[in-house]
Amino acid sequence: MARGSRCRLHWRRGWLGALIGVTLGIVAGFTGGWVDAILMRLVDMQLAFPLVLFALLVVAALGPSLTNLIIVLGITSWTQYARIVRGQVLALREREFVLSARAAGAGSLRIMARHILPNVMTPVLVVGTLELARIIVMDAALSFLGLGVQPPTPSWGRMLADGRVYITSAWWVVTFPGLAIALTVLSVNLLGDWLRDYFDPKARQ
């Protein structure tokens, strides 16, 4: 499978975490109070648990499949989005345009959807790019252990697992899938750094 197709597949796997994280981050930051406290404690609890071990437990319980892998990658990546978005919303909810919308009679859902959400999409885009690299590595790790996508769907991690027995006689069988993972992750990280600098006015200067 071409590298572009692989990246598009990983983007589809990462959208669930972004959807959950952005939604909960906006709700936590805009609502505040006990809702914010509960959601942030959930974030702290998940961050305190090893993500790879958590992914292994969930995939082992649900079974290896593309659908289950999407669920696992989604529920292990939402915390980063939630923390970033919450911080942005805490600053935005006291801005003049939000106060004006509230004074005009706009409800909380309308304010969050029409005024808050568009203003947090830039950091979400940057975080999503950086999270894509982590998803690629975790996908390869789970596939290497036999808990990722199943044949006939191609996977770099499974290629590494199948080729390790030939590493002494046919090194290229393992080397090229490993290089593909490394180069893809490096490219995605560089893209994330570029987006972060591009959207930061101080960095552009």
Rank of each mutant, 00 (worst) to 15 (best):
A180R: 02
R12I: 04
G107N: 09
V52A: 09
A61W: 15
M121V: 13
L16H: 04
G192L: 02
V127W: 03
I38G: 00
D193F: 00
G157Y: 12
Y198N: 03
L190W: 11
G163R: 03
S169P: 00
L47T: 05
V52F: 15
F176H: 11
C7V: 15
D44H: 01
D139K: 00
L16Y: 07
G163I: 10
V185M: 04
V127D: 06
T23W: 01
L66S: 14
S155N: 13
V174W: 03
N68C: 01
F176W: 15
M112P: 08
R6S: 09
R8N: 08
V98I: 15
R8E: 14
A106C: 10
V43L: 11
T168S: 10
L66T: 15
G29T: 13
T31R: 09
V173C: 00
V127N: 06
V43W: 07
S108W: 13
G107M: 06
S108D: 15
G146A: 07
L57H: 02
L62M: 14
V43C: 06
R41Q: 13
V22S: 05
V27S: 06
I71E: 05
Y166L: 12
G163L: 04
L125G: 14
E131F: 00
V58H: 03
M138K: 03
G107K: 08
L145A: 07
S100W: 04
F176L: 12
N68T: 09
L66P: 08
A103Q: 10
A133L: 04
D36K: 00
R204S: 06
T175Q: 11
A55C: 05
F199S: 06
R83K: 11
G192T: 09
Q88Y: 05
L142E: 14
